[in-house]
Computed example of a mutant assay.
Amino acid sequence: MIPGCISNYVLVDSQIEEAIHVSAPLTTQVFYDVIRIKQGVPLFLEQHANRFFRSFVLAGFPYVIPKNKLRSALMLFLKHEKLHEGNVRIVYYHDATPSFCIYQIAHSYPTADMYKNGVAADFFHAQRKDPNIKQELHIRTLANQEIIRKAVFDVVYVDENQMVREGSRTNVFFVHKTSLVTASSESVLCGIARENTIQIAHEMGIDVQQRNIALSEIAQFDAAFFTGTSPKILPIAVLGNYTFAPQNMLVQQCIDAYNQKLENYIQTYI
């Protein structure tokens, strides 16, 4: 069985198979994406698909399946699995058999208390080699160990130049007065929630600065939050030795607007 798979079935190269009969192939290059399912709808599927295929292009590999078949493959899996709520993983194993799989993975969504009072996080001195390519890397294993050791929601990467980049499984935004500040798109894995947050901010007339963020700047920010597939927009209460205001008005406005965008997507999809 594929490690991390919790579903009864796995879509393997466009065919449905029982999960107990499917094993992950041995390969050093694994590209993937995670899509949240809500009310049976794969949220922001088009954006996830574009990022999934963009990883192939950046790595110099051809598409594993035509773009227009990814949606039908995913819907076939959801139908057999009878999955209405949860997270699914789409995976491409380069130069291996099987090469393409879809299966359900465990998820952990923030509680109401976390959205209200924020979460704790810490810094982690590391950086992705190719941040725009979503692939399995040893750095994520090290980050997970640090998350467990420090009992935090996530760790935020700080590079060798002392620049704050992204969370190990999230993107991070800071609030400075009436502006949002986040690392430049060239230096991070641009998450779908990050893209939608920036779009929402622009629609609301909120200034968004995408730039290098020095670790020495963190003390000047009023608030901070994570964005991601599972957490959506999640306030940060503590980051390292710095504390922030989880109920900052700008953060709450972004949360409300993001949730509305999500609901609108579901209604349009249905």
Rank of each mutant, 00 (worst) to 15 (best):
Q247R: 03
V152C: 06
L58G: 01
V34R: 14
T27C: 10
F123L: 13
A201L: 13
D13P: 09
L74D: 01
L76A: 02
P42G: 05
A126L: 12
G40Y: 04
D13K: 12
T229E: 07
I20K: 13
N161L: 06
I16G: 12
S230Q: 04
M75V: 06
L26F: 11
R89N: 08
Q162V: 05
G228W: 09
D159I: 04
K177C: 01
V155C: 12
A245R: 10
Q209V: 09
P131C: 15
H176A: 00
L26G: 08
C254L: 15
A183N: 00
H80A: 03
T27E: 13
D33G: 10
H107T: 13
H84T: 07
Y157V: 00
K150W: 09
D159R: 04
D13T: 11
N264V: 12
E186N: 05
A224V: 13
Y63N: 02
P42M: 03
F100Y: 09
V30I: 07
D159L: 03
I6E: 03
T268R: 08
I105H: 11
Y92P: 09
P235C: 10
G167V: 00
N144Y: 09
Y242L: 12
A224T: 13
R128M: 12
N144F: 13
C101P: 10
A59F: 03
A237T: 03
N248S: 06
E166Q: 01
R71M: 00
L11D: 10
V181A: 02
E81C: 07
P231D: 07
T227K: 10
I147V: 15
H125M: 15
I105P: 06
K38L: 06
P3G: 01
C101T: 11
Q199I: 14
D122N: 08
A219P: 15
I148F: 02
F52R: 01
D222A: 15
F61L: 04
Y269E: 15
G205L: 12
S179D: 02
F153M: 08
T141R: 08
F174G: 00
S108G: 08
I200P: 11
Q252N: 14
S184I: 03
A121N: 14
F173Y: 05
A237E: 05
K79Y: 04
A257T: 12
G167I: 02
Y32W: 11
L74F: 02
S7D: 01
R140C: 12
T28Q: 11
I147A: 03
A121G: 14
K177D: 00
L45V: 14
